[in-house]
Design a protein around this nucleic acid. Structure first.
Lengths: 353, 353
DNA sequence: TTGTATGCGTTATCAT
DNA sequence: ATGATAACGCATACAA
């Protein structure tokens, strides 16, 4: 007994098989090649043809297979982003705008988190690269060396955001964190403050946090001042941590305490403000507090947080445009600086005396 | 003159050609099939073979082509999420944990935003589907009808999060927003409040926001109370909007004003608290304010926000597990409820009198 | 355990 | 302007 089989049969999983381009072509009575053209490059095909194919596609509910398309065209129309975490609202805003702009340009976004660790960042980026991303958005300038060679090797465009690399070693969209911190500190110095403390972010694995601390020290040094022992503490970005941090840097006899506390970001500053209140300290009467980033709450929280505004969303959108332009061979600025600006609100005042 | 040509040559773009599996196989002196197995299913191959291939892969810097792999295996190891926006920190946290868990399980995440619009949600989901996602996380229960048929047709697992669908029409991970709002309102009622106002989220395109308003009304109705004219206002989620909202619902003569304001989420509640202070109202002395979600700031902001805690991160992680389990044929609970709990802090007090 | 052959669905080359 | 047809790089059914 001979077993007859069709020439074509499903070989692997039977798959709730969806309609493919050849089905559309068949229904429209054209070749797959023409169907492909009708759908992707409508102007390179006759008007009637175009419509027949389109109609067939709609009728069958045709959905192109991205994998096949990517394999054949070597284009995934997907870009990747690896960010420290989405838990910081300021990063979330950046990713939000990145996706939004990417979407407008016809690209999808794959995100991955690094937890502020260069090794995990490398793993995640490798992962995304394997998945065929055509561009990569990174945060900061401090990356695993292997990451750059990987990117170079595969010829995948990338941008470092939240930083402005003076040597232009890599494409970047951002600002000089050192200089921004200097400006913030200068503002406080000009107000007359002389005793400072800083609640910084964790420098390890976070060049922006490190740079901000450097900027503060630099500005103080220029005026012959410094952060005394115990007046600089590093904390993970968070409100709870800001409270802890404030308590730590306010240790010691009242007359030696700082009159101004500079926080590595606004979350820390919120915590510092809350803790100051809990300690019976008046902000800005007894203590000035400044932050960094400028989140939605910063302008509303009493007494209003003086902070350095960082255009997070703008950087996300610019990163999207940069990457897509590079991918599509359009002109793209290698280095673009965004404006950070000091926003003065109620949390600062000249020291008494 | 005859033009001789090699049997194999590059046909399309010359492409900074990366090394492919066959290269690795050649170097290792095995067939591509064996190389594939050595890399993907190490246990189905000899130990020495395994090592030789691995070494060759490393030496050549082999990076698999996800598109080809996806096409051949019909597996992308990618899941998608379409969320209203990443700008709400509570959503960002959910996505963060989703990605984190997905990563642990070997999957990547593609995110897209819907801006609270079902039509955009459909477009985005379609997009992700075309890109080969194997699972989809959605928020809420109100989706475009076509979305469900699409998902059904392609046989792609999905979950609705932030909701608990009583009829179990679709897989879900979340809680009953109506009931949660009832509990929150009951708490206020038990305290003795009798004049209420609500600053709700925009119900259009947001079933969670709508459900919360329903819950508030329901709880009030059970005690013979209601939201008087002008005491219910819808605002987009935001601090600024919370301020505006408070001003609106506090209109009228003092003796008719509400003693309790229920906010659709914590951002609105923050705004309400700030605006109350600006109006010279003491919270909770003159006015009780409650929120919904419980963000990082809620426990720190003076006087402490009474709110319904929503385990956003947990839902993200559970969604990841659900989707991956479904994809990999492992058992997965169709409907899982997460616990929301009332967190009482300083922003509420019995009305005077 | 390993090799051989084929097909995944699409785009692009070439000829018409 | 349209149609054949060969890759794209990999994983799998099947034979050995």
């Amino acid at each position: 007994m001979t077993m007859e089989r069709g020439t074509k049969r499903k070989r692997f999983q039977e798959s709730a098989q969806s309609v493919k381009l050849s089905d559309v072509a068949a229904l429209a009575g054209v070749s797959p090649a023409t169907a492909s053209r009708a759908l992707n490059t409508p102007d390179k095909v006759g008007a009637d043809m175009r419509e027949r194919v389109r109609a067939a596609a709609v009728k069958l509910g045709y959905v192109p297979d991205a994998a096949a398309r990517a394999l054949a065209s070597r284009r995934s129309r997907t870009i990747g982003a690896v960010v420290p975490t989405l838990d910081n609202p300021i990063f979330a805003t950046g990713v939000q705008r990145l996706e939004s702009r990417l979407n407008e340009r016809g690209y999808a976004l794959v995100v991955a988190g690094s937890d502020y660790r260069v090794d995990k960042e490398l793993r995640q980026a490798t992962n995304l690269l394997e998945r065929g991303i055509e561009g990569l958005m990174l945060m900061g300038t401090e990356h695993h060396p292997s990451l750059y060679v990987l990117l170079e090797t595969r010829g995948v465009p990338h941008v470092n955001t939240w930083v402005d690399e003076g040597d232009a070693a890599h494409p970047c969209i951002g600002f000089d964190n050192v200089e921004a911190a200097v400006r913030l500190t200068d503002y406080l110095l000009d107000l007359g403050h002389a005793r400072f403390a800083m609640i910084a972010g964790i420098a390890e694995g976070n060049d922006r946090a490190a740079a901000r601390a450097v900027g503060v020290r630099e500005a103080l040094a220029r005026r012959g001042l410094r952060l005394d022992d115990g007046r600089l503490i590093e904390e993970p970005y968070g409100v709870r941590e800001g409270r802890d941090g404030l308590r730590a840097v306010m240790a010691g006899p009242p007359e030696e305490r700082p009159t101004a506390v500079i926080c590595g970001n606004d979350l820390l500053a919120f915590g510092a403000i809350f803790e100051a209140a809990a300690m019976g300290l008046d902000v800005p009467g007894d203590l000035s507090v400044v932050g960094f980033d400028d989140t939605e709450l910063s302008s509303h929280i009493p007494p209003g947080l003086t902070t350095m505004h960082v255009p997070s969303g703008e950087m996300g959108a610019l990163a999207a445009d940069y990457l897509v332009n590079r991918i599509e061979g359009k002109p793209a600025r290698h280095r673009t600086r965004v404006e950070v600006r000091l926003v003065v609100r109620g949390s600062t005042a000249p020291p008494r005396g």
